[in-house]
Amino acid sequence: MSLVKVTIDQIEVEVEAGTTILNAARIIGGGVVPPAMCYYSKLEGSGGKCRTCLVKVAQGSAKDPRPMPKLVPSCRTLVQDGMVVQNITSPEVMEARKAITEFLLINHPLDCPVCDQAGECHLQDLSYDHGLADTQTVEDRRTFAPIDIGDKIKLHMNRCILCYRCVMVADQLTDQRVHGVLGRGDHCEISTHILKAVDNDFSGNMIDVCPVGALTDKTFRFKSRVWFTKPFDAHRECTKCSGKVVLWKKGDEILRVTGRKNKYGELEEFICNDCRFEHKEPNDWQIEGPRKIERHSVIGQNHYEKL
């Protein structure tokens, strides 16, 4: 594999040809990584939609040093040898990101106090980093009634930012497409077509890929704020999936089971609904130890390792 050199915010890095700018930035890590609300490395075709990861390409490549005329989505733009990218060093990018954050929030209910995702929500993180302190909108937001997607998943369409990740999960898991997007524009709606439940052993992963609180686990809803629960790595023998999960415990009680996510909030492996919803007894699981959560500040503050 040939290596190419790319400079992101004045930091040079060598990556394999065919890497996206976003993944090159993730190799560098730290502050130069653009936020990604829709890109998900394990979902084919994801990315390019939310526009939060827009960056400026100041030099296209060593061969053709012209800058790219518009900001480009870093999750879908491949690096070229000698490319120079500006992310946090470009005021233009930061202004665009601020605007995109505002766009994502104008139809969002901001109901974090009653939302199960609060504390591990990517939109929360994004608005802490790039949001305005006040709102410029006075209009009503679009509203939908919450609906069930299958018997274990609740959809709050009001909170959805239409990243299409859950649609792609459903697309990749099942041949018979039952889950998709209805309507157009800001009245778009995630839906199982004609309210048909998604009946698949791995449908629960839609909850884990959702960057916001649009899809939540009905077995966990309103049980606890996530920062009061303590995550542990655990596993069990499972015939359907690897059985490697994170248990979210309050005292001895297992409140929630999720897949293991890396620091960008992406699942390491998809887990089955059996592990996720049906096994909540402590003796169902072999506990490996506390799980370190790097990304989400609120949970990260829980220094439970010492307990």
Partner: peptide
């Protein structure tokens, strides 16, 4: 344009409706 925006990317989906309002 608000009516015809496909709703795929956030600036157009949210911005067209906001401008109309």
């Amino acid at each position: 344009y608000h009516h015809e925006s496909c709703g795929q990317c956030s600036p157009c989906r949210e911005g067209t409706g906001w401008m109309e309002r």
